[in-house]
Amino acid sequence: MDDFELYDDIIEDEGPSDPISFFSEEIDFEIANPALLRQWVESIVEREKGELNFVNYIFCADSYLLKLNQEYLKHDTLTDIITFPYHDPPIIEGDVYISIERIRENAHQFGATFEHELNRVMIHGVLHLCGYSDKTPEDKSKMTEKEDEALGILRSINA
């Protein structure tokens, strides 16, 4: 896996001061309304009492995320997201890898729009960086509650 380089295809020029960046690997994908999503993610980190240094979103293909899952987590399954934290909360630093193929399939499976499912998974990664887990049923329930709260905040920002 020597050929993995973090986020070498920049989707748009965020500039050096943006703590939230969007990249792609092995796919052609551009996030809709990046300024709104940055504002939203920043507001959730602030709400969770985090100190945002950076979050890199890397949108990729199933095959790319599967390789990461196999190499770094020793899992041989497809997944929609892998979050790599580089610091413990309250410092928020990390890379959030998201499979666009999984998002499309999950949206169809759950009867959601692609955008809603993408936003849910994006904030799921940030919540992991904020210290939330989803390993136990109780943790999953709390994570879902936090995701729903964050999605409600996005709706209000977007109104």
Rank of each mutant, 00 (worst) to 15 (best):
78 L>R: 12
156 S>L: 03
62 D>R: 09
55 V>W: 08
93 E>W: 02
129 L>W: 01
124 H>V: 03
9 D>G: 10
69 N>L: 01
81 I>T: 02
21 S>H: 11
134 D>T: 06
93 E>D: 05
156 S>F: 00
58 I>P: 04
83 T>V: 02
84 F>A: 01
130 C>F: 02
51 E>V: 15
111 G>I: 05
63 S>L: 05
95 D>Q: 05
34 P>N: 05
134 D>F: 04
137 P>M: 12
26 E>P: 15
39 Q>A: 03
137 P>F: 11
123 I>G: 12
97 Y>Q: 14
25 E>C: 15
4 F>G: 00
134 D>G: 12
148 D>A: 01
60 C>K: 04
1 M>F: 00
80 D>K: 02
72 Y>L: 04
143 M>E: 07
138 E>K: 12
104 R>L: 06
12 E>C: 12
144 T>V: 09
94 G>C: 03
83 T>P: 02
132 Y>G: 14
159 A>C: 03
25 E>K: 14
32 A>I: 14
32 A>T: 15
9 D>M: 08
68 L>S: 07
5 E>L: 08
97 Y>E: 15
104 R>A: 11
92 I>D: 04
67 K>W: 00
66 L>D: 14
110 F>M: 10
109 Q>F: 03
142 K>G: 13
105 E>P: 10
48 E>C: 07
82 I>Q: 14
7 Y>C: 11
20 I>S: 07
48 E>L: 07
34 P>G: 04
62 D>M: 11
90 P>V: 02
13 D>K: 08
153 I>P: 00
85 P>T: 05
122 M>I: 01
105 E>S: 10
155 R>Y: 02
126 V>I: 09
71 E>C: 09
106 N>W: 02
93 E>R: 07
118 L>Y: 05
146 K>R: 10
93 E>C: 01
10 I>N: 15
151 L>K: 04
127 L>V: 01
73 L>F: 13
36 L>D: 13
85 P>R: 12
45 V>F: 04
144 T>W: 14
142 K>N: 11
32 A>S: 14
124 H>F: 07
5 E>N: 06
105 E>D: 11
78 L>G: 09
41 V>E: 10
8 D>K: 15
55 V>S: 08
107 A>K: 06
68 L>Y: 06
133 S>V: 08
138 E>I: 05
32 A>V: 15
118 L>E: 10
86 Y>P: 00
